[in-house]
Design a protein around this nucleic acid. Structure first.
Lengths: 121, 121
DNA sequence: ATTATAATGATAATCAATATCACTTGTCCA
DNA sequence: TGGACAAGTGATATTGATTATCATTATAAT
């Protein structure tokens, strides 16, 4: 998978696995520094990208134009709050059930990723 | 809605309404220049933002970290091609039907937008 | 232990998006 | 009709997230 082990990558991945807050790069960086104070922000960026490339993490794009990361690779919808900007998992399906948990849903976007018919040829 | 009429805003909105390609700012800018050669890129940014704020357009965030815009405010899923980066409307529901049209679907993200329970209080 | 090279960390560079500000233009009203 | 006020524009500077660069460090095979 990766050509060599690195302490930094392990720490970055552990930080990501141990939270459900869908953190930004900066948050992962701050947490990683608590374990490896010498780690650099470039290494955090690099490893998060690598984790995504290797299918070990997903990027969640938010309206504030920052990348958030999620190590939970099971398919599940997210809820993004326009007030505090938090990204949360919503395990139930459908507007009604989400509303019952206190979420005020204004909009819903669904995006499929893959290869379009032209490129598939 | 808007406090004053402006030719520039009308052109930007018309450009957006007349395409289904979910264009970037730059594409809208180039098209708008064909009608109003003196229009500035800042004006295009500004008006696209305003259109979104007023519920006349939506932002589609793509993995290339650029904002794409869509004047179709009906709720509909998008398909983003990892090969060419195009953003397309997929009007049918479900992986199977999309696959029948030649799309190779690898992943699907659903995001709800609104106010989280804590902020709603 | 030696060696090849992957990975790191500091920092420069990139680039999309936003802010600034003097100037222009739409709209109100005398 | 003609100011006058302020919204809107356009050129450009600034910001800020992400990526590239490169000398140095560290992993893993021999």
């Amino acid at each position: 998978m990766f050509q060599r082990y690195s302490k930094q990558r392990e720490v970055v991945y552990n930080v990501l696995c141990q939270t459900k807050t869908h953190p930004t790069v900066d948050w992962v960086y701050e947490e990683a520094k608590k374990v490896l104070p010498e780690i650099g922000i470039a290494t955090v960026y690099r490893n998060l990208r690598e984790l995504v490339k290797h299918g070990m993490a997903k990027v969640v794009l938010t309206p504030d134009n920052k990348e958030h990361f999620d190590a939970d690779m099971t398919q599940h919808p997210h809820f993004i709050c326009k007030s505090c900007g938090c990204v949360m998992d919503v395990t139930t399906q459908g507007h009604t059930k989400i509303a019952q948990k206190g979420f005020v849903v204004e909009n819903c976007d669904t995006t499929f990723f893959g290869t379009c018919p032209q490129c598939a040829n």
